[in-house]
Nucleic acid binder design. Sequence first.
DNA 1: TTAATCCCTAGTAATCCACTCGGCTTGGTC
DNA 2: GACCAAGCCGAGTGGATTACTAGGGATTAA
Lengths: 151, 151
Amino acid sequence: MRLSTKGRYGIRAMLVLARRYGEGPVPLKEVAEIESLSEAYLEQLVSELRKAGLVRSVRGAQGGYLLAKDPAIITTGDIIRVLEGPIGPVQCVVEFPGTDTCDCAESCVERLLWKRLRDSMVQVLDSITLADLMAEEKKLNPSSGTGDRSC
Amino acid sequence: MRLSTKGRYGIRAMLVLARRYGEGPVPLKEVAEIESLSEAYLEQLVSELRKAGLVRSVRGAQGGYLLAKDPAIITTGDIIRVLEGPIGPVQCVVEFPGTDTCDCAESCVERLLWKRLRDSMVQVLDSITLADLMAEEKKLNPSSGTGDRSC
DNA sequence: TTAATCCCTAGTAATCCACTCGGCTTGGTC
DNA sequence: GACCAAGCCGAGTGGATTACTAGGGATTAA
């Protein structure tokens, strides 16, 4: 019941961009350094975020990535959905189901349980934006605003 | 962000035992048939549930498994914890952390997000018991009480 | 023109998942 | 007491997934 690194790194990367919102593109190399992540790997994640319209890119020297929207309207759910797929503890109660909802459909109580679990996950993830996280960050350590991590 | 089959099958198996609570041991073969699962695989899961004290076993002919407690006091969280490990979307905010909480500990906003997600998952799973599921089941399909599944 | 930067595809080692298999022990039943 | 139904246990395995790495373009500011 764990997120993969994609979701976790994705949130971290987006938070870096959020802190620099309005200051022009941030090169991926810098994001990778700040978060101590592999640049090449991060590139793949950010590429997905770009295709999903959450970040914009500027190519060429002096280029980089920036948030495509205000941090206040990008939710953590948006990010997780792009990188981990639709939210839900089991395939058959996932949001926006594709072809594979199971047959038992209505007569199955487990589904009810999983739906409730899914809804509570969705509720949390969709209610927390990047701006929210930045605000909490200020409360946590008002001193350094960099967000650099030691670990 | 998905459960593995262990958690899913585990809930299904426990639900079978819950429906037969008070009627003596149910052989695993029967559970496997009702739920269309591999008996050998199921054996591993049930074995963990037994070691955790959620089911009891009766060896020898006419033996099988039974719930170790009333369905009303076994929560879905209990079952999931045994089969999937402590609940939490990332290792570092898992319940009952072992050695590996991360260093960033307090200064890290992501942790805050993951904690909230974890708490909402725990809340749902710990509030729903096997008895609750059986009650819902009655409401869903009052006709057949077997719980046999076609899929 | 150079260098910084994004873009894309392919490969890969390690790990994990979802099982299967085979043999052992226990204990009713005949 | 033999037989057989059942639980108990550990090892093995094929396939999928994860978390990357590598390398070669394309784009553009300086």
